[in-house]
Structure formats: structure tokens, C-alpha cells
């Protein structure tokens, strides 16, 4: 199946000379939830802005469902919905008017049933006659999502949609996102909350310094790059790691009550058997043991910290 979004050698140099994107190549599969991670200033918003038509590219091409975003901008943009990072709404319009406005703007005829459904899905139906200026930040965020969905897009961009949003709204939002994905909508998400990407994403891309440094299936990524830790809860606390175990790279935790061993799951030998033998020889007894897989956050931090 052809990708819904194809980005080829995309670059952006701002007038100030800032090289925001350096030859990005990326393909997004139909119907997937793709999480784009990256530190501030990495180029996430620039990338989304170019695809959506808000910023002009300096070079390269982007196609949305086969439509070039420059040559065939009408067809390309009609398929896209964008929830921007900033909470920008008109002040004096009502929720109902602004969501209907968005639908018209994207070239769709009036359809009150669809707008009603979108508002109900986002728990905005009761607020439909409220002016936007009277809404809380979280409600405004919902309105921005409703506006992005009003024209029934096939691709939805969520640019850090949960920044500054309370837990309840976040849960609501992810419920809506999952439901959208079930109906075949492709979702591209940028977020700072890596646990969100970990929960929701099918694939993860990491962008840093205007370059895509990694694109990987999430499960595969966590398997590949995941470091695992073996945590041993000691029967008798230790003051220091015994000399005989020094070269194993053990760390003492929780006031000497645990010993933490970090190992690479991909290595030929994890060293666990030898470690346990040595512990036995040193007379260290333990009451419990557990293993912990590193999170996407750990992986991410390691990736962007690595010297390029």
C-alpha cells in the first residue's frame, strides 16, 4: 500500500539563515499513529507547518495521498486536519460558528450532523453557543481539535496537543484519537510526554537538529535500544559494592538495600548467570528480584544526547 504521506529530501532555511530542516525523508503509513519526538527547536513544528502549507519549503517534495502539496495543494490540504500547538482562537465567535467556519473553509458543504457529532465526541455540545473567549484553556484546546476534524480529514496532525492540559482532557483526547484511528484516519503526533507516544504510537520518529535520526516501529525500537535492569533486593543491606564484584558495574540503591545491574538485552551474553554465581560466592543473599525495561523516555534522552 502506498504511503499516505511521503516526504522527500525536504529542507528549510529561514531568512535568518537558520537551517531548520536538513533533507528530511519520511514515509507515513496509511492509518498508523506516528509519534514524532524531538527536543525544542528540533524542527517538529517547521516540518508540520510545511506539510500543512503554513511555511514554504526551501527544497524537496511532500505528497499527501499522492497529491503534491505545492502543485496540487487543494487536494492535498483537503485531506489534512491540523491542531496547532498554540491556543489560537477567535474571541467573539461561538463554538458552533467557528467549527462550521472551519468546515466551509476546507471546501465542505454545510453538514450539521457531522459538526454535531464532532462536538459531542469532544464533550463540547453543551458549550456550542458559548463564545470562545469564555472558555477555559482546556475547552479551547477541544475547540481546536473540533475545528481540525470538522472537514473529516484523512490525516490529522496534532502538534503537542496535550501541553498544559489536565489529566481528564488528556484521557478524553486519546479516546477520540484512538476512535479516529479505528476509522482509518492517519495520525501524526508530536509530544513532549513520551509516555503518550509509548502508549499510543505504532511507530516513532526522532528528529534532532533538523534531521530525522531514527524511525522505528515502537515495539521494535524498545526491544532494540531498550536496556534492561535487574534489581536485587538484598536480605542484608550493604555499605559498598564488594571488591570482588567491582568490575560488574553494579550500583547500590535505596540505602544499600538493592543492587542494580544494567545489561543489554541484545548482547550475546547478558552476564546474569555469572553475576548470580559471584553473588552466591560473596555470600550476598537476596529476598526478591525484579527486572525493568527502559522506557521510551530513556531511549529518547540517550538518542538526542548522543554526539552527532
Amino acid at each position: 500500500m502506498s504511503p499516505i504521506l511521503k516526504i522527500t529530501n525536504l529542507s528549510k532555511v529561514y531568512d535568518s539563515g537558520f537551517h531548520a530542516l536538513k533533507g528530511i525523508d519520511l514515509e507515513i503509513k496509511r492509518g498508523e499513529l506516528f509519534a514524532l519526538l524531538g527536543p525544542n527547536g528540533a524542527g517538529k513544528t517547521t516540518l508540520i507547518s510545511i506539510i500543512c502549507g503554513i511555511v514554504n519549503a526551501s527544497g524537496g517534495t511532500v505528497t499527501v495521498d499522492g497529491h503534491d502539496i505545492a502543485r496540487d495543494f487543494r487536494a492535498a490540504r483537503a485531506e489534512i486536519g491540523l491542531v496547532p500547538q498554540e491556543l489560537t482562537t477567535d474571541a467573539f465567535e461561538t463554538v458552533w460558528a467557528t467549527v462550521n467556519f472551519s468546515r466551509g473553509l476546507f471546501g465542505k458543504p454545510k453538514n450539521h450532523a457531522i459538526v454535531e457529532k464532532v462536538l459531542k465526541d469532544l464533550s463540547l455540545w453543551d458549550k456550542r453557543d458559548n463564545k470562545l473567549i469564555t472558555l477555559s484553556g482546556g475547552m479551547k484546546r477541544r475547540v481546536l481539535i473540533a475545528k481540525a476534524l470538522a472537514h473529516e480529514p484523512r490525516v490529522l496532525f496534532l502538534d503537542e496537543p496535550t501541553a498544559g492540559v489536565d489529566v481528564e482532557l488528556r484521557r478524553d483526547m486519546w479516546r477520540v484519537v484512538r476512535r479516529l484511528q479505528e476509522t482509518g484516519v492517519t495520525i501524526i503526533l508530536t509530544t513532549h510526554y513520551i509516555e503518550e507516544a509509548e502508549d499510543l504510537a505504532d511507530r516513532v520518529g526522532v528528529i534532532n537538529g533538523g534531521e530525522i535520526i531514527l524511525v522505528e516501529d515502537k515495539v521494535e525500537l524498545m526491544r532494540k535500544l531498550g536496556r534492561k535492569q535487574l534489581i536485587l533486593h538484598l536480605a542484608d543491606p550493604l555499605e559498598a559494592v564488594p571488591e570482588t564484584l567491582a568490575e560488574r558495574g553494579l550500583e547500590l540503591g535505596q540505602n544499600g538495600e538493592t543492587l542494580v545491574y544494567t545489561y543489554d538485552t541484545q548482547a550475546e551474553r547478558t552476564g546474569i548467570t555469572a553475576l548470580l554465581k559471584d553473588l552466591h560466592a560473596a555470600g550476598i543473599r537476596f529476598r526478591d528480584l525484579q527486572t525493568r525495561q527502559s522506557s521510551l523516555e530513556d531511549i529518547f534522552v540517550n538518542l538526542v544526547k548522543a554526539p552527532s
Binding site: C52, I54, T88, L105, G107
Partner: peptide, 10 residues
């Protein structure tokens, strides 16, 4: 900033 919507529309 609401201009984003007009710029991203077809």
C-alpha cells in the same frame, strides 16, 4: 495567530 487555518486550508 488564527491565520494558520486560512493558510492551511485548500
Amino acid at each position: 495567530g488564527t491565520i494558520y487555518e486560512v493558510l492551511s486550508a485548500p
